[in-house]
Design a protein around this nucleic acid. Structure first.
Length: 423
RNA sequence: GGAGAGAUGGCAGAGUGGUCGAAUGCGCACGCUUGGAAAGCGUGUAAGGUGUCAAAGCCUUCGAGGGUUCGAAUCCCUCUCUCUCCGCCA
C-alpha cells in the first residue's frame, strides 16, 4: 500500500511514477474521494466530540439527582445524526481502502524503463552455456519413463501436475537440503515451517489480494482460505501486526513450501514437462530490515540466490526487470535466469524483490527505532533461492550426457550419494 | 464432532453501565542515589487517525462484526480464536 500522506501531498509525482509501469492513476477520482472524506470525517468527529461532552454532562446530572431530560433529547438527536453520517463515512472509507489497495507500488529510480519482458536489462551473465557435441534432449525426454511421470500427474489430479520418482525425486530432495543448508549455514537465515493454506488477510498483506484472486486456488467451502502461491505469503505475514525490537533486525527467514498457482491466463505457455505447473517446490528467502538498509538487502539476498546457481555451476544471467514487467508489489526486482539448453534461452529460476514499505504498510509490520523511539514501518525483501522444480529441470538438461545419463554437480554428490544418475 | 471456560496495553492482571484508554505489578526509558553497580526513590511509557514548525487538542480502538443505551471493556446477538474435559485420530 502506498502512503496515503504521500498520495495526498505528492499526487502528481505518484501518478508520474505509476505511469512508468503503464498504470493509470486516476487523480480526479482520488481527489474527489479524499476531499469528501476529509469533510465527512471532520464533521463527524466534531459531532462525536459534542456527543461525548453531553453524555458526560448527563452522567454528572444523574449522579447529582438533577433532571437530564432535555440533555437526553439533545443527545438522542445527535446520536441519530452521527449514525447516518457514520454509515456514509464508513462506505466512503471502504471505497478509499479498496482504491488504495489496488494501486501498485512505486518503482525505484534505477528501474529501467520498458514495456514488457523484452526490455528487461541484463546486469550480468555468469558462466557460459555448454557446447554439446551431441544434440541435447529436453528434460522430459531425459526423464520420461525414468522418473518424470506426467501421465501419473494427470491421472491423479489433472494437467499441469507431475509425479517424480526414484532418482529424480531424490535429486529434488537433495537439492532442497543443499539449498536450505547453504542459506542457513552460509547466509545466516533462520528456517521456518509454515502453513500451506493461508487466509485472506495474509494475501492482502503481501499484495496477492484483492487484485489477483484469479491466480490463486481458493478452498471450496472455506470463505477465506487459499492455497499459498509462494512461501512469501505465510513467511512475510509472520510480521503482520508486529512491532519488532531493533536487535532482531535484520530478520532473515528461509522456508521451503510447495507453491500452488492456477496459471490462469497462461494457456498454451510452457505446456511441456515441468516448466510451469500448478504445484511446484520452492525455497524462499525473506528479509525484513529497516528502510535505510533495504537496497543493500536486495543486493545481498539476490547474491544468496546466485550463490546456489554458482555452486551448482549452472550458467545464468541476472536481469533487472523493466518498469513494464515488474510485479505489483515490488519497487525493484532482479530475476535470475538459468540457461535451458533445449530452449536455447535463459529462463526465470528466481525473482528477488525489494518491496520497501509496501507490504509492511498493508500488514502493519513495524519496528521500534531506538534512535528516536519512533515506530516505523519495516522494509521487506524476498526472493526464490531457488525454484526447486526448475532447478531439477536445469540440472537434467545442463548436465546430460550423450549416453542419456546425468552427471551430478560436485556440490550435490554428498547430498545425493551419487555422482551420476539415470545411467 | 460433543460439553464447558475464556479473549483487556510489551507481559501479567484488575475492572459488570458514566470523569475508564483503562488500577496494580513486571518490563522498558530517563533522572536521583552510588567510587561503580544492584537495591531504593522519582518521573515517564498503547496503537491508529486528525491537527501542528513542533505541540496541545479532538476522534477511534479493551478478539472481530452487529445491536440496546444519552453513554458500553462492562448488557444482548453472530463470528473467530484459545484453554479444559469427552470422542476420534497421525
Amino acid at each position: 500500500m502506498l502512503d496515503p500522506k504521500k498520495l495526498r501531498k505528492e499526487t502528481s509525482e505518484v501518478a508520474l511514477n505509476l505511469s512508468r509501469r503503464g498504470f493509470n492513476f486516476d487523480q480526479n477520482t482520488w481527489n474527489d474521494l479524499e476531499s469528501e472524506r476529509k469533510e465527512l470525517q471532520g464533521s463527524n468527529e466534531v459531532q462525536q466530540s459534542k456527543l461525548n461532552d453531553i453524555s458526560k454532562e448527563i452522567g454528572l446530572a444523574v449522579k447529582e439527582g438533577k433532571d437530564a431530560t432535555q440533555l437526553k433529547e439533545q443527545a438522542s438527536e445527535l446520536t441519530a445524526l452521527i449514525k447516518t453520517q457514520s454509515k456514509t463515512l464508513d462506505d466512503l472509507l471502504e471505497d478509499i481502502n479498496q482504491f488504495v489497495l489496488s494501486l501498485p507500488n512505486l518503482i525505484d529510480e534505477d528501474v529501467p524503463d520498458g514495456k514488457n519482458e523484452d526490455e528487461n536489462l541484463e546486469i550480468i551473465s555468469v558462466g557460459s552455456p555448454r557446447q554439446f557435441n551431441f544434440s541435447p534432449k529436453d528434460h522430459l525426454e531425459i526423464g520420461d519413463n525414468r522418473g518424470i511421470d506426467m501421465e501419473a500427474g494427470v491421472k491423479i489430479t489433472g494437467s499441469r501436475f507431475k509425479v517424480l520418482k526414484n532418482e529424480i525425486a531424490q535429486l529434488q530432495r537433495a537439492l532442497l537440503n543443499f539449498m536450505l543448508d547453504t542459506h542457513i549455514k552460509d547466509h545466516g537465515y533462520e528456517e521456518v515451517y509454515v502453513p500451506y493454506i493461508v487466509n485472506k488477510d495474509s494475501l492482502i498483506g503481501t499484495g496477492q489480494l484483492p487484485k489477483f484472486e484469479e491466480d490463486l486456488f481458493k478452498i471450496d467451502g472455506e470463505s477465506n482460505f487459499y492455497l499459498t502461491s509462494t512461501a512469501e505469503v505465510p513467511v512475510t505475514n509472520l510480521l503482520r501486526d508486529e512491532i519488532l525490537e531493533s536487535e532482531t533486525l535484520p530478520l532473515k527467514y528461509v522456508c521451503h513450501t510447495p507453491c500452488f498457482r492456477s496459471e490462469a491466463g497462461s494457456y498454451g505457455k510452457d505446456t511441456r514437462g515441468i516448466m510451469r505447473l500448478h504445484q511446484f517446490e520452492k525455497v524462499e528467502l525473506v528479509q525484513a530490515v529497516e528502510s535505510s538498509d533495504s537496497e543493500e538487502a536486495l543486493e545481498e539476498l539476490t547474491g544468496h540466490a546466485e550463490a546456489i546457481l554458482q555452486k551448482l555451476e549452472l550458467p545464468y544471467r541476472k536481469v533487472s526487470l523493466c518498469s513494464g514487467d515488474i510485479g505489483f508489489s515490488a519497487a525493484k526486482t532482479y530475476d535470475l535466469e538459468v540457461w535451458v539448453p533445449s530452449q536455447d534461452a535463459y529462463r526465470e529460476i528466481s525473482s528477488c524483490s525489494n518491496f520497501r514499505d509496501f507490504q509492511a504498510r498493508r500488514m502493519k509490520a513495524r519496528w521500534k527505532n531506538p534512535s528516536n523511539n519512533k515506530i516505523e514501518l519495516l522494509n521487506t525483501i524476498n526472493g526464490s533461492g531457488l525454484a526447486l522444480s526448475r532447478t531439477v529441470l536445469a540440472i537434467l538438461e545442463n548436465y546430460q550426457e550423450s549416453d542419456g545419463s546425468v552427471t551430478i554437480p560436485d556440490i550435490l554428490r554428498n547430498y545425493l550419494g551419487k555422482d551420476k544418475i539415470l545411467n
